[in-house]
């Protein structure tokens, strides 16, 4: 078990342009932290730096408040599980799992019982003597996880642990990782590009966009209280409209909204509202009027493109009762609106 502190970390490939600059993050003991961001943003690079496989240009990494930046991977109490299973093809399942113990010269009955425990934990009982190429993709991924867990590292680093799996296996593996994380209370940092994966699995999420850490917080915080439009957009925010603060109210083409936040007057703001938060109803006089441009049935909901006072909004409505060219009324709950200063 251990805590992790990352201070001012800058990373680049072979002396090229920096991929990650001045990255700071604290992960507390036993926490499950998701590193979220689009592909190619340098998440895996951070993970490799934490594992010691890449030397940072600047900054330091502390595990349990001890600076480990200069330590090689084999001397760090952090184990990385790669995106691909990367099992040793010339060893069977048990030999793969026991590899780390063998490197520490732990042998005999103790090693065997550890292997058996881990096999049970990762639901691989009875597979110990199997060759790795006989396993399914999901099983291989679990062996890879087991191989890391057996070392009981202070920090467990998972690189896109679900991305190589089919949809149905993905859920199974996700539940397994969550279960193991809860059971062992091991400090876990996992990388993903999938926002729903990050929201479901992590206690806290760090969102990285354009090489910078944009927001760290509980999944609900990132989802409902994004710090800037980019974060909102990353989590599927698609409705943006602008307005000004006048007389304690936010004045927009869509009407006046009371403002809860402490904001400066006479300054433009961008507002966002999630498509599922807009309340839609058949045309009536009470609310804002709009016309449906087109619809797209998605199963559980229908996505509607609504033109309303010159602003195009996307609304998610349950069911399939709305049709294109229909006139509707919209209600935008003021407490669901999030405001950002416009020139950020």
């Amino acid at each position: 078990m251990g805590s992790l502190k990352i201070r001012n970390l800058s990373l680049s490939y072979n002396g090229g342009a920096p991929v990650i600059e001045k990255f700071n993050l604290d992960v507390s003991d036993g926490e499950c932290m998701g590193l979220l961001g689009p592909s190619g943003v340098g998440k895996t690079t951070i993970l490799k730096a934490l594992a010691g496989l890449i030397q940072p240009d600047q900054g330091c990494i502390l595990i349990d408040d001890v600076d480990v930046t200069a330590l090689p991977p084999e001397k760090r109490d952090a184990v990385m599980v790669f995106q691909k299973p990367l099992l040793f093809p010339f060893m069977n399942v048990a030999q793969n799992i026991g590899f780390g113990l063998r490197m520490r010269k732990i042998n005999g009955a103790h090693k065997q019982s550890e292997i058996n425990n881990i096999l049970r934990l990762t639901r691989l009982d009875g597979f110990g003597r199997h060759k790795v190429h006989e396993l399914s993709g999901g099983q291989q991924q679990r062996v890879s996880l087991a191989r890391a867990l057996i070392l009981r590292p202070a920090i467990l680093l998972l690189d896109e642990p679900l991305s190589n799996l089919d949809a149905n296996l993905r859920q199974e593996m996700r539940e397994l990782i969550q279960e193991i994380q809860t059971k062992t209370n091991i400090t876990t940092i996992f990388v993903t590009h999938d926002q729903s994966e990050a929201l479901m699995m992590s206690q806290r999420v760090s969102l990285i966009l354009d090489g910078r850490l944009r927001q760290v917080g509980r999944p609900q915080d990132l989802f409902y209280r994004p710090v800037d439009p980019d974060v909102a957009r990353f989590f599927g925010g698609c409705n943006f409209f602008t307005g000004e603060i006048k007389n304690g109210q936010f004045e927009t083409p869509l009407g006046l909204f009371p403002v809860g936040q402490d904001l400066k007057k006479n300054q433009p703001y961008t507002a966002t509202i999630r498509p599922e938060d807009i309340v839609i109803s058949p045309a009536n006089d009470k609310h804002l009027r709009g016309a449906i441009l087109r619809t797209n049935f998605e199963g559980a909901a229908t996505r509607l493109w609504v033109q309303c006072n010159g602003v195009q909004l996307i609304v998610l409505a349950a069911g399939a009762q709305y049709k294109a060219h229909q006139n509707v009324s919209l209600h935008i709950p003021p407490d669901k609106i999030r405001l950002f200063p416009k020139n950020v």
Binding site: P73, E74, L151
Partner: peptide, 23 residues
């Protein structure tokens, strides 16, 4: 595959000699 497997070995705490011998 070698470079990737050697990295795996490194994070699994194999030292230089062990990586040569076992990977």
């Amino acid at each position: 595959t070698g470079i990737e497997l050697l990295q795996v070995g490194q994070t699994l705490k194999a030292n230089r000699w062990q990586r040569f011998r076992y990977i």
